[in-house]
Amino acid sequence: MSTAAGLLLVISSSISHDLLKKTFMPKINERQELFYARCSAAVAIIVAGLFGIYPPAFVAQVVAFAFGLAASTIFPALFLGIFSKRLNKEGAIAGMLAGLIFTASYIIYFKFLFSELDSSSYWLLGISPEGIGFLGMIINFLTAIVISSASSKPPIEVGKMVDKIRLP
């Protein structure tokens, strides 16, 4: 249950902070933002509860799915954002989407659409859906780097920001 609470909090903050405050409703003040954060937490709990009552698949499969997606989308974007100054927005967006689409389709194919084929003789390079996130991550890295080097450099302020976060 401790985990559920933590997960619901990141969902609600990304809705109230990233979607509302930073993108669609930049004019709201802090009290309103806090109010929306609480509302979205409440909505997220209800949705999560519905998932709990009508589960889409086995618990273990679903959790493996989450890790694979995190490895193939968020990790490379954060890592490259800190350790490379050259990576630009085109590269990062293309990388995340490539990782997401590749990993999600592989898992959906073997776990939900054709679960009877889910055995080592059909897997790509002998990698099970639980481990495919690693390959997805490599695809994300390659896509991001190739697309970045083929398009324009990021603005100078970004380089300054990266320099700043590298110092404690």
């Binding site: 985990t3 997960l7 997606l69």
Partner: peptide, 25 residues
């Protein structure tokens, strides 16, 4: 990545990841 699109893609991934995880929980 100085981009609203990048932020939205990240939100999409985050919600996808967190909801699959929380469903199991």
């Amino acid at each position: 990545y100085y981009s609203k699109t990048a932020r939205l893609v990240a939100v999409l991934c985050l919600i996808f990841i967190s909801f699959t995880y929380v469903a199991g929980q």
